[in-house]
Design a protein around this nucleic acid. Structure first.
Lengths: 218, 218
DNA sequence: GTCTATACGTCGATAGAC
DNA sequence: GTCTATCGACGTATAGAC
Protein backbone atom coordinates (compact mmCIF):
# COMPACT_ATOMS: atom_id res chain seq x y z
CA UNK A 1 0.00 0.00 0.00
CA UNK A 2 2.92 2.33 0.21
CA UNK A 3 5.62 3.17 -2.22
CA UNK A 4 8.91 4.81 -1.39
CA UNK A 5 8.71 7.51 -3.95
CA UNK A 6 10.75 9.95 -1.92
CA UNK A 7 13.31 9.68 0.86
CA UNK A 8 11.02 11.12 3.52
CA UNK A 9 8.43 8.47 3.10
CA UNK A 10 10.16 5.22 4.03
CA UNK A 11 6.89 3.45 4.68
CA UNK A 12 8.05 -0.11 4.15
CA UNK A 13 10.53 -2.23 6.05
CA UNK A 14 13.03 -1.95 3.21
CA UNK A 15 13.87 1.55 4.32
CA UNK A 16 15.27 0.33 7.62
CA UNK A 17 17.25 -2.35 5.85
CA UNK A 18 19.07 0.23 3.82
CA UNK A 19 21.00 1.22 6.91
CA UNK A 20 21.75 4.80 6.10
CA UNK A 21 18.22 5.76 7.09
CA UNK A 22 18.40 3.85 10.37
CA UNK A 23 18.48 6.94 12.51
CA UNK A 24 15.79 8.64 10.51
CA UNK A 25 13.52 5.65 10.76
CA UNK A 26 14.03 5.50 14.52
CA UNK A 27 13.34 9.20 14.82
CA UNK A 28 10.29 8.85 12.69
CA UNK A 29 9.05 6.08 14.92
CA UNK A 30 9.73 8.18 17.99
CA UNK A 31 7.73 11.04 16.56
CA UNK A 32 4.87 8.68 15.83
CA UNK A 33 4.90 7.33 19.37
CA UNK A 34 4.98 10.77 20.90
CA UNK A 35 2.24 11.92 18.56
CA UNK A 36 0.00 9.09 19.72
CA UNK A 37 0.49 10.25 23.30
CA UNK A 38 -0.32 13.82 22.34
CA UNK A 39 -3.50 12.67 20.67
CA UNK A 40 -4.51 10.67 23.71
CA UNK A 41 -3.73 13.50 26.09
CA UNK A 42 -4.93 16.51 24.19
CA UNK A 43 -7.63 15.14 21.95
CA UNK A 44 -8.79 17.53 19.29
CA UNK A 45 -6.55 20.25 20.66
CA UNK A 46 -3.46 18.24 19.83
CA UNK A 47 -4.16 17.54 16.18
CA UNK A 48 -2.50 20.52 14.58
CA UNK A 49 0.94 20.12 13.12
CA UNK A 50 2.21 22.92 15.31
CA UNK A 51 0.65 21.58 18.49
CA UNK A 52 2.15 18.13 17.97
CA UNK A 53 5.55 19.65 17.22
CA UNK A 54 5.34 21.88 20.28
CA UNK A 55 4.59 18.95 22.57
CA UNK A 56 7.33 16.85 21.03
CA UNK A 57 9.80 19.70 21.30
CA UNK A 58 10.67 20.29 17.67
CA UNK A 59 9.71 22.86 15.10
CA UNK A 60 6.62 22.13 13.08
CA UNK A 61 8.74 22.17 9.95
CA UNK A 62 10.69 19.21 11.29
CA UNK A 63 7.59 17.07 11.15
CA UNK A 64 7.24 17.77 7.47
CA UNK A 65 10.66 16.28 6.98
CA UNK A 66 9.29 12.90 8.02
CA UNK A 67 5.72 13.20 6.84
CA UNK A 68 4.78 14.78 3.58
CA UNK A 69 1.80 16.58 5.06
CA UNK A 70 -0.27 16.87 8.20
CA UNK A 71 -2.76 14.50 6.65
CA UNK A 72 -0.08 11.90 6.00
CA UNK A 73 1.06 12.19 9.62
CA UNK A 74 -2.48 11.68 10.85
CA UNK A 75 -2.88 8.60 8.71
CA UNK A 76 0.39 7.17 10.04
CA UNK A 77 -0.53 8.00 13.63
CA UNK A 78 -3.78 6.10 13.22
CA UNK A 79 -2.10 3.15 11.57
CA UNK A 80 0.57 2.94 14.24
CA UNK A 81 -1.86 3.31 17.14
CA UNK A 82 -4.06 0.61 15.72
CA UNK A 83 -1.09 -1.65 15.01
CA UNK A 84 0.10 -1.30 18.59
CA UNK A 85 -3.25 -2.14 20.09
CA UNK A 86 -3.78 -5.07 17.74
CA UNK A 87 -0.37 -6.62 17.79
CA UNK A 88 -0.74 -9.14 20.58
CA UNK A 89 -3.92 -10.41 19.09
CA UNK A 90 -4.86 -14.07 19.05
CA UNK A 91 -6.26 -14.68 15.60
CA UNK A 92 -8.38 -17.76 15.75
CA UNK A 93 -9.63 -18.28 12.21
CA UNK A 94 -12.99 -19.57 13.44
CA UNK A 95 -14.06 -16.62 15.56
CA UNK A 96 -17.15 -15.10 14.00
CA UNK A 97 -16.85 -12.04 11.81
CA UNK A 98 -19.02 -10.00 14.15
CA UNK A 99 -16.99 -11.02 17.19
CA UNK A 100 -13.79 -9.97 15.44
CA UNK A 101 -15.17 -6.53 14.71
CA UNK A 102 -16.61 -6.24 18.22
CA UNK A 103 -13.22 -7.07 19.73
CA UNK A 104 -11.55 -4.54 17.44
CA UNK A 105 -14.07 -1.90 18.44
CA UNK A 106 -13.48 -2.65 22.11
CA UNK A 107 -9.72 -2.25 21.71
CA UNK A 108 -10.05 0.96 19.72
CA UNK A 109 -12.25 2.35 22.44
CA UNK A 110 -9.42 1.90 24.98
CA UNK A 111 -7.11 4.29 23.10
CA UNK A 112 -8.22 7.86 23.75
CA UNK A 113 -8.81 9.79 20.57
CA UNK A 114 -8.43 6.82 18.24
CA UNK A 115 -12.07 6.53 17.21
CA UNK A 116 -12.25 10.31 16.78
CA UNK A 117 -9.17 10.22 14.58
CA UNK A 118 -10.62 7.42 12.49
CA UNK A 119 -13.86 9.29 12.07
CA UNK A 120 -12.00 12.45 11.03
CA UNK A 121 -9.91 10.54 8.51
CA UNK A 122 -12.94 8.94 6.92
CA UNK A 123 -14.77 12.28 6.76
CA UNK A 124 -11.70 13.87 5.17
CA UNK A 125 -11.43 11.01 2.73
CA UNK A 126 -14.98 11.63 1.51
CA UNK A 127 -14.08 15.18 0.46
CA UNK A 128 -12.35 15.60 -2.85
CA UNK A 129 -8.83 16.95 -2.86
CA UNK A 130 -7.47 14.85 0.01
CA UNK A 131 -5.69 12.02 -1.76
CA UNK A 132 -3.85 10.65 1.25
CA UNK A 133 -6.90 10.27 3.43
CA UNK A 134 -8.89 8.98 0.48
CA UNK A 135 -6.28 6.35 -0.32
CA UNK A 136 -6.12 5.33 3.31
CA UNK A 137 -9.87 4.92 3.71
CA UNK A 138 -10.38 3.26 0.34
CA UNK A 139 -7.69 0.69 0.95
CA UNK A 140 -8.84 0.16 4.49
CA UNK A 141 -12.44 -0.56 3.55
CA UNK A 142 -11.41 -2.78 0.65
CA UNK A 143 -9.06 -4.81 2.83
CA UNK A 144 -11.50 -5.01 5.70
CA UNK A 145 -14.26 -6.19 3.40
CA UNK A 146 -11.99 -8.78 1.77
CA UNK A 147 -10.65 -10.11 5.06
CA UNK A 148 -14.04 -10.20 6.69
CA UNK A 149 -15.70 -11.82 3.69
CA UNK A 150 -13.13 -14.58 3.80
CA UNK A 151 -13.83 -15.05 7.49
CA UNK A 152 -17.56 -15.20 6.80
CA UNK A 153 -16.90 -17.99 4.32
CA UNK A 154 -15.01 -19.92 6.99
CA UNK A 155 -17.77 -19.21 9.49
CA UNK A 156 -20.31 -20.55 7.04
CA UNK A 157 -18.30 -23.72 6.50
CA UNK A 158 -18.11 -24.12 10.28
CA UNK A 159 -21.87 -23.67 10.63
CA UNK A 160 -21.54 -20.42 12.55
CA UNK A 161 -23.24 -18.28 9.93
CA UNK A 162 -26.20 -19.19 7.77
CA UNK A 163 -25.18 -20.35 4.33
CA UNK A 164 -27.72 -18.36 2.34
CA UNK A 165 -26.06 -14.94 2.71
CA UNK A 166 -23.41 -13.40 0.50
CA UNK A 167 -20.07 -13.10 2.35
CA UNK A 168 -19.13 -9.78 0.76
CA UNK A 169 -22.46 -8.23 1.62
CA UNK A 170 -22.26 -9.49 5.19
CA UNK A 171 -18.75 -8.04 5.46
CA UNK A 172 -19.86 -4.60 4.31
CA UNK A 173 -22.82 -4.71 6.68
CA UNK A 174 -20.76 -5.75 9.69
CA UNK A 175 -18.11 -3.09 9.05
CA UNK A 176 -20.74 -0.38 8.61
CA UNK A 177 -22.57 -1.43 11.75
CA UNK A 178 -19.37 -1.53 13.78
CA UNK A 179 -18.18 1.88 12.55
CA UNK A 180 -21.54 3.52 13.00
CA UNK A 181 -22.06 2.07 16.46
CA UNK A 182 -18.67 3.32 17.62
CA UNK A 183 -19.70 6.86 16.74
CA UNK A 184 -23.07 6.51 18.44
CA UNK A 185 -21.41 5.09 21.53
CA UNK A 186 -18.93 7.95 21.73
CA UNK A 187 -21.71 10.51 21.53
CA UNK A 188 -23.99 8.68 23.92
CA UNK A 189 -22.51 6.11 26.22
CA UNK A 190 -25.96 4.57 26.61
CA UNK A 191 -26.08 3.59 22.94
CA UNK A 192 -26.48 -0.21 22.73
CA UNK A 193 -23.24 -0.86 20.89
CA UNK A 194 -22.54 -4.32 22.24
CA UNK A 195 -26.16 -5.40 22.20
CA UNK A 196 -26.56 -4.29 18.59
CA UNK A 197 -23.51 -6.26 17.50
CA UNK A 198 -24.72 -9.29 19.44
CA UNK A 199 -28.09 -8.90 17.79
CA UNK A 200 -26.45 -8.87 14.38
CA UNK A 201 -24.47 -11.95 15.36
CA UNK A 202 -27.63 -13.81 16.34
CA UNK A 203 -29.45 -12.72 13.20
CA UNK A 204 -26.62 -14.09 11.09
CA UNK A 205 -26.61 -17.44 12.89
CA UNK A 206 -28.12 -20.41 11.08
CA UNK A 207 -31.90 -20.29 11.58
CA UNK A 208 -32.47 -23.47 13.50
CA UNK A 209 -30.22 -22.31 16.31
CA UNK A 210 -32.37 -19.25 16.88
CA UNK A 211 -35.97 -19.98 16.32
CA UNK A 212 -36.78 -23.64 16.67
CA UNK A 213 -35.95 -26.25 19.30
CA UNK A 214 -33.56 -29.00 18.11
CA UNK A 215 -35.14 -31.99 16.44
CA UNK A 216 -38.01 -30.07 14.93
CA UNK A 217 -36.48 -28.24 12.01
CA UNK A 218 -34.92 -31.05 9.97
CA UNK B 1 -34.81 10.41 11.08
CA UNK B 2 -35.88 13.91 10.39
CA UNK B 3 -37.12 16.56 12.64
CA UNK B 4 -38.30 20.09 12.18
CA UNK B 5 -37.99 21.24 15.70
CA UNK B 6 -36.71 24.73 15.21
CA UNK B 7 -35.72 25.52 11.68
CA UNK B 8 -34.38 28.96 12.20
CA UNK B 9 -32.92 29.27 15.59
CA UNK B 10 -30.64 26.85 17.38
CA UNK B 11 -27.54 28.67 18.38
CA UNK B 12 -28.60 31.53 16.19
CA UNK B 13 -28.31 35.25 16.78
CA UNK B 14 -30.85 37.38 18.49
CA UNK B 15 -32.48 38.48 15.25
CA UNK B 16 -34.07 35.13 14.60
CA UNK B 17 -34.76 34.39 18.23
CA UNK B 18 -36.61 37.63 18.80
CA UNK B 19 -38.78 36.97 15.79
CA UNK B 20 -39.52 40.59 15.09
CA UNK B 21 -37.07 41.05 12.24
CA UNK B 22 -38.92 39.53 9.32
CA UNK B 23 -36.36 40.82 6.87
CA UNK B 24 -33.52 39.39 8.89
CA UNK B 25 -35.15 35.99 8.91
CA UNK B 26 -35.71 36.14 5.16
CA UNK B 27 -32.13 37.15 4.60
CA UNK B 28 -30.97 34.35 6.81
CA UNK B 29 -33.01 31.88 4.79
CA UNK B 30 -31.61 33.30 1.57
CA UNK B 31 -28.08 32.85 2.84
CA UNK B 32 -28.88 29.26 3.78
CA UNK B 33 -30.28 28.50 0.34
CA UNK B 34 -27.30 30.02 -1.41
CA UNK B 35 -24.95 28.18 0.92
CA UNK B 36 -26.55 24.87 -0.02
CA UNK B 37 -25.89 25.63 -3.67
CA UNK B 38 -22.30 26.52 -2.91
CA UNK B 39 -21.83 23.23 -1.11
CA UNK B 40 -23.32 21.30 -3.97
CA UNK B 41 -21.25 23.14 -6.55
CA UNK B 42 -17.92 23.49 -4.80
CA UNK B 43 -17.82 20.55 -2.41
CA UNK B 44 -15.03 20.66 0.09
CA UNK B 45 -13.65 23.81 -1.50
CA UNK B 46 -16.76 25.74 -0.60
CA UNK B 47 -16.92 24.99 3.09
CA UNK B 48 -14.94 27.90 4.47
CA UNK B 49 -16.79 30.86 5.84
CA UNK B 50 -14.95 33.12 3.48
CA UNK B 51 -15.56 30.96 0.41
CA UNK B 52 -19.29 30.81 1.10
CA UNK B 53 -19.42 34.54 1.68
CA UNK B 54 -17.45 35.21 -1.51
CA UNK B 55 -19.88 33.15 -3.59
CA UNK B 56 -22.89 34.76 -1.98
CA UNK B 57 -21.40 38.19 -2.50
CA UNK B 58 -21.01 39.41 1.07
CA UNK B 59 -18.15 39.67 3.50
CA UNK B 60 -17.44 36.73 5.73
CA UNK B 61 -18.17 38.90 8.74
CA UNK B 62 -21.72 39.35 7.50
CA UNK B 63 -22.34 35.63 7.83
CA UNK B 64 -21.38 35.72 11.47
CA UNK B 65 -24.18 38.18 11.99
CA UNK B 66 -26.69 35.43 11.18
CA UNK B 67 -24.81 32.39 12.39
CA UNK B 68 -22.84 32.37 15.58
CA UNK B 69 -19.98 30.42 14.04
CA UNK B 70 -18.96 28.54 10.95
CA UNK B 71 -19.92 25.34 12.72
CA UNK B 72 -23.41 26.64 13.45
CA UNK B 73 -23.80 27.60 9.80
CA UNK B 74 -22.73 24.15 8.69
CA UNK B 75 -25.25 22.54 11.01
CA UNK B 76 -28.01 24.77 9.67
CA UNK B 77 -27.01 24.13 6.08
CA UNK B 78 -27.24 20.40 6.68
CA UNK B 79 -30.57 20.67 8.46
CA UNK B 80 -32.04 22.83 5.74
CA UNK B 81 -30.74 20.70 2.88
CA UNK B 82 -32.12 17.59 4.49
CA UNK B 83 -35.41 19.26 5.26
CA UNK B 84 -35.79 20.32 1.64
CA UNK B 85 -35.08 16.85 0.27
CA UNK B 86 -37.37 15.18 2.80
CA UNK B 87 -40.27 17.53 2.75
CA UNK B 88 -42.46 15.91 0.11
CA UNK B 89 -42.08 12.56 1.71
CA UNK B 90 -44.89 10.09 2.00
CA UNK B 91 -44.67 8.75 5.52
CA UNK B 92 -46.50 5.48 5.62
CA UNK B 93 -46.32 4.30 9.23
CA UNK B 94 -46.01 0.66 8.17
CA UNK B 95 -42.98 0.90 5.91
CA UNK B 96 -40.18 -1.12 7.49
CA UNK B 97 -37.49 0.64 9.50
CA UNK B 98 -34.80 -0.51 7.11
CA UNK B 99 -36.73 0.70 4.07
CA UNK B 100 -37.16 4.11 5.67
CA UNK B 101 -33.44 4.44 6.24
CA UNK B 102 -32.66 3.12 2.77
CA UNK B 103 -34.98 5.69 1.22
CA UNK B 104 -33.41 8.43 3.31
CA UNK B 105 -29.95 7.32 2.26
CA UNK B 106 -30.99 7.32 -1.38
CA UNK B 107 -32.34 10.88 -1.13
CA UNK B 108 -29.25 12.12 0.70
CA UNK B 109 -27.12 10.65 -2.02
CA UNK B 110 -28.87 12.83 -4.62
CA UNK B 111 -27.74 16.06 -2.96
CA UNK B 112 -24.07 16.67 -3.78
CA UNK B 113 -21.96 17.15 -0.69
CA UNK B 114 -24.69 16.27 1.78
CA UNK B 115 -23.28 12.94 2.94
CA UNK B 116 -19.81 14.48 3.16
CA UNK B 117 -21.19 17.31 5.26
CA UNK B 118 -22.97 14.88 7.56
CA UNK B 119 -19.83 12.83 7.98
CA UNK B 120 -17.81 15.95 8.78
CA UNK B 121 -20.37 17.12 11.32
CA UNK B 122 -20.38 13.77 13.10
CA UNK B 123 -16.58 13.63 13.13
CA UNK B 124 -16.46 17.17 14.53
CA UNK B 125 -19.08 16.28 17.12
CA UNK B 126 -16.89 13.45 18.42
CA UNK B 127 -14.09 15.90 19.24
CA UNK B 128 -14.36 17.80 22.45
CA UNK B 129 -14.71 21.55 22.27
CA UNK B 130 -17.28 21.67 19.49
CA UNK B 131 -20.55 22.09 21.35
CA UNK B 132 -22.71 22.99 18.36
CA UNK B 133 -21.76 19.98 16.30
CA UNK B 134 -21.94 17.77 19.39
CA UNK B 135 -25.43 18.99 20.24
CA UNK B 136 -26.54 18.47 16.67
CA UNK B 137 -25.23 14.92 16.43
CA UNK B 138 -26.38 13.90 19.90
CA UNK B 139 -29.91 15.13 19.33
CA UNK B 140 -30.00 13.67 15.88
CA UNK B 141 -28.97 10.18 16.97
CA UNK B 142 -31.30 10.24 19.96
CA UNK B 143 -34.26 11.33 17.86
CA UNK B 144 -33.44 8.93 15.06
CA UNK B 145 -33.18 6.04 17.50
CA UNK B 146 -36.45 6.97 19.21
CA UNK B 147 -38.35 7.42 15.94
CA UNK B 148 -36.96 4.27 14.43
CA UNK B 149 -37.57 2.20 17.55
CA UNK B 150 -41.19 3.26 17.50
CA UNK B 151 -41.41 2.23 13.87
CA UNK B 152 -39.85 -1.13 14.69
CA UNK B 153 -42.55 -1.67 17.29
CA UNK B 154 -45.20 -0.99 14.67
CA UNK B 155 -43.42 -3.27 12.22
CA UNK B 156 -43.38 -6.02 14.82
CA UNK B 157 -47.09 -5.60 15.46
CA UNK B 158 -47.66 -5.83 11.71
CA UNK B 159 -45.59 -9.00 11.47
CA UNK B 160 -42.89 -7.34 9.36
CA UNK B 161 -40.13 -7.77 11.91
CA UNK B 162 -39.55 -10.70 14.21
CA UNK B 163 -40.93 -10.14 17.68
CA UNK B 164 -37.94 -11.41 19.64
CA UNK B 165 -35.65 -8.41 19.04
CA UNK B 166 -35.41 -5.23 21.06
CA UNK B 167 -36.70 -2.22 19.09
CA UNK B 168 -34.11 0.20 20.49
CA UNK B 169 -31.26 -2.13 19.64
CA UNK B 170 -32.59 -2.70 16.15
CA UNK B 171 -32.89 1.07 15.69
CA UNK B 172 -29.27 1.67 16.69
CA UNK B 173 -28.12 -1.15 14.41
CA UNK B 174 -30.08 0.06 11.40
CA UNK B 175 -28.88 3.65 11.81
CA UNK B 176 -25.28 2.56 12.19
CA UNK B 177 -25.50 0.28 9.18
CA UNK B 178 -27.09 2.97 7.05
CA UNK B 179 -24.55 5.64 8.04
CA UNK B 180 -21.58 3.34 7.62
CA UNK B 181 -22.75 2.05 4.27
CA UNK B 182 -23.20 5.57 2.92
CA UNK B 183 -19.54 6.27 3.65
CA UNK B 184 -18.41 3.02 2.09
CA UNK B 185 -20.52 3.69 -0.98
CA UNK B 186 -19.09 7.17 -1.41
CA UNK B 187 -15.55 5.84 -1.28
CA UNK B 188 -16.23 2.86 -3.48
CA UNK B 189 -19.26 2.90 -5.68
CA UNK B 190 -19.09 -0.89 -5.86
CA UNK B 191 -19.80 -1.23 -2.14
CA UNK B 192 -22.99 -3.27 -1.72
CA UNK B 193 -24.97 -0.57 0.05
CA UNK B 194 -28.42 -1.56 -1.15
CA UNK B 195 -27.75 -5.27 -0.93
CA UNK B 196 -26.48 -4.94 2.63
CA UNK B 197 -29.57 -3.04 3.72
CA UNK B 198 -31.79 -5.58 1.99
CA UNK B 199 -29.86 -8.33 3.72
CA UNK B 200 -30.47 -6.67 7.07
CA UNK B 201 -34.14 -6.33 6.20
CA UNK B 202 -34.42 -10.03 5.43
CA UNK B 203 -32.51 -11.02 8.56
CA UNK B 204 -34.93 -8.99 10.64
CA UNK B 205 -37.98 -10.60 9.03
CA UNK B 206 -39.88 -13.18 11.07
CA UNK B 207 -38.05 -16.51 10.80
CA UNK B 208 -40.64 -18.76 9.23
CA UNK B 209 -40.81 -16.64 6.12
CA UNK B 210 -37.12 -17.05 5.48
CA UNK B 211 -35.79 -20.39 6.50
CA UNK B 212 -38.24 -23.22 6.37
CA UNK B 213 -40.53 -24.45 3.62
CA UNK B 214 -44.23 -24.18 4.49
CA UNK B 215 -45.74 -27.15 6.29
CA UNK B 216 -42.58 -28.22 8.05
CA UNK B 217 -41.96 -25.72 10.80
CA UNK B 218 -45.35 -25.44 12.44
C1' DG C 1 20.21 13.87 6.45
C1' DT C 2 18.21 16.55 10.10
C1' DC C 3 16.35 20.50 11.60
C1' DT C 4 15.47 25.74 12.49
C1' DA C 5 13.94 30.08 10.91
C1' DT C 6 11.13 32.52 8.29
C1' DA C 7 7.60 33.86 5.15
C1' DC C 8 3.14 33.28 2.52
C1' DG C 9 -1.63 32.84 2.09
C1' DT C 10 -5.84 31.38 4.39
C1' DC C 11 -8.60 30.58 8.15
C1' DG C 12 -12.46 31.80 12.06
C1' DA C 13 -13.41 35.34 15.10
C1' DT C 14 -14.05 39.99 16.63
C1' DA C 15 -14.13 45.26 17.13
C1' DG C 16 -15.69 49.32 15.48
C1' DA C 17 -17.07 52.56 11.59
C1' DC C 18 -21.02 53.74 8.74
C1' DG D 1 -26.98 45.10 8.96
C1' DT D 2 -22.98 45.16 6.69
C1' DC D 3 -18.50 46.67 5.97
C1' DT D 4 -13.24 47.05 6.71
C1' DA D 5 -9.49 46.07 9.57
C1' DT D 6 -7.10 43.30 12.41
C1' DC D 7 -5.86 39.34 15.37
C1' DG D 8 -3.72 34.84 16.29
C1' DA D 9 -3.32 30.30 14.49
C1' DC D 10 -3.08 27.26 10.81
C1' DG D 11 -0.64 24.17 6.74
C1' DT D 12 2.78 24.58 3.48
C1' DA D 13 7.11 25.94 1.24
C1' DT D 14 11.85 27.27 1.06
C1' DA D 15 16.64 28.67 2.45
C1' DG D 16 20.22 27.41 4.71
C1' DA D 17 22.67 25.98 9.33
C1' DC D 18 24.80 21.85 11.16
Amino acid sequence: MREAENPQDPGGPSAAARGSYAKGVARRQEILDRAIEVFARRGSEGTSLRAIAREIGVSHAALTHYFSSREALLVEVYREAERQTHEHEPHDPDISAVKVMAASARRNHTVPGLVQLYSTLVATALESGHPEATRFATIRFAQARANLAERVRRNQAAGLIRADVDPGTVAALVIAASDGLQSQKLLDDAAPQTQALMLLESLLAPPRAVEAPPGLGD
